[in-house]
Structures are given as C-alpha cells and as structure tokens.
Design a binder for these strands. Structure first.
Lengths: 142, 142
DNA sequence: CGGTATCCGTATGGATACTG
DNA sequence: CAGTATCCATACGGATACCG
C-alpha cells in the first residue's frame, strides 16, 4: 500500500482526497497504513538501527528494493508528521539532513520489524503453500 | 498498499508484472506486503476470531472501510495462495464458501492485530504530533 | 450466493529535470 | 546534498454485467 499521499506537486499542497475523506471514519487505520506502507516498513526498519541521511537511507533501502526520491521524501514526511520520525536539518552548505526514529516510532518499528522477520522465517512454508495452490489449480484446469 | 495483484480479468490469468519481477530479488517482502495490504490486514484480523462466508466477511470489514467484491476476492486469493487462509467451497445450491484462518495465517494475523491495536492505543500521541507538525509549518509560512 | 469478466476513471508512484 | 516540480504510464480499485 502506498503512503496514500499525493505529491504536493500534483495538486497544490494538499494531502490526498481519499485519505482526507477516510480520515473521518477510522483515523487509526490510516496510521496503520502509514507504518505498513511499502516504504514505511523499510524506513522504520532501517532507522531502528541508527539514524541516516537522506541519500544514505535511500541507498540502504535500495539494497532491498529501489525507491524513488519522491516516494522516500513523501514517506519520510508522513512518518514525521505522525511523530514516528525526527528530521534534523542542519543549516550548512551542502545541506545535511539526518533522520532518526522517535520513541513513539520505535514502538511501531519494533513490531513492524518483528513481522518482517517473521515473513523471512516462514518463507518456505509460504512457498510450499504456493506450490500446492498452483498445482491444485493446474490440475483443475485439466 | 494494494494487494499488488492485477485482476485476472485485466491481463489474462497472470499476476502483475511488477510483482513478478520483484519476486526474484526479495520474496519475503511480497509476503509482508500481502499481509499488511489494505484489505489483507482487515481480513486477517476478522478471521482471527472466527470463520466467515464471503458476503458476511465483506459486511464485517465494511464496518471499518468499504471493500469491493473484486478486491475482497483478490485479497482472499492471495492470502489463500500464501497459505494464510483456508477456503472451503461447499458444493451446494445456493453456493456456500467459508473462509477460515490457517495455523500459519494465525501467526501473521496475531502480529498484525497487535500492530492494529497499538495504532489505536497511540492514536492521541499521533494526533498531537500532527498538530505540532502542522502548527510548525503554519508558523514557517508566516 | 459467490464469484469472474470487462470496462474505465484516476490516484499512485517512477523518471527526469531543476533549485537552494 | 536534499529535496521540489512536472510529466506520464499503469495498476489500483469501483461499477456493472453475467455465470455456475
């Protein structure tokens, strides 16, 4: 799931309409979507170990899956706004911005990491299940 | 984040190309995306308590967020293929299909539920963080 | 009832170029 | 370096129709 935020570029400075509409009925579902989003998961997991600069974080995450600058920036902004990530912009040339996890973010990140680890551990069970499923469908086709 | 599967209808019987390509480099990331997907989270959480029929599940989930038949079917298929959900189609008229969670799925669902609960508990911290963030940006604008 | 097939609008998010 | 602006492909997901 994406971060569900339209880039500020596409429509002037507003968060997505969908997200805004859904915010009314069940606010914490959105928070869940933020932390479990495609890049949110990887950002939180990375920041659990140490703080990162923007490009450094991009490279780190890139080991697993390539993320565009745009999506990384969007994800970081969302997580910062929710209070999970702290952004420290140093007024130097060239610019230097450090991202770190907050105490609140750490709580989320630990659970997310646990889930991520779990998928790794259970991966072969999943693959066996998939093989069985595909085989059954193949058989049904004949 | 969606389930990341294109409907079988759109392109003949194949899973999304993106998903297929990414499957190669980091398979367990996809599993994580399946269980944390928009509807995957809600399906797993619901099935943790008891089994449901298709429409019944749709109504249950609908209390939180409306899901189309198409997306629910897609989500259930993905979770079934991964071995998290068991599908029991009874050969009766009218058709009756029960969905239940598997032991493997239960492990995932429990973690997902814990995370979902956590977002509920910490919701006011998040809202305070958001208010602070928005106020800071407002101040910077002036 | 429990789906699948098809059509289709549009938000999502990647690539690229540009700026402070 | 750390982003923002812009463009654009596409896949996400809703509506509808139909079938077993």
């Amino acid at each position: 799931m994406g971060v569900s935020e339209r880039g500020a570029a596409d429509v002037k400075g507003e968060r997505g309409r969908r997200e805004e509409a859904r915010e009314a009925m069940c606010p914490h579902r959105l928070v869940l979507e933020h932390v479990t989003s495609r890049w949110g998961v990887l950002v939180l997991d990375a920041l659990l170990d140490r703080s990162y600069r923007f490009s450094e974080l991009r490279r780190e995450i890139g080991k697993l899956s390539t993320v565009s600058e745009k999506m990384l920036a969007q994800t970081l902004q969302t997580l910062e706004r929710d209070g999970f990530v702290h952004r420290d912009a140093k007024p130097v040339i060239p610019p230097r911005v450090d991202y770190s996890i907050t105490p609140l973010g750490r709580e989320a990140a630990e659970q997310v990491r646990a889930l991520a680890r779990w998928t790794g551990v259970r991966m072969d069970d999943v693959q066996r299940a998939r093989a069985a499923y595909d085989a059954a469908r193949e058989a049904a086709r004949a």
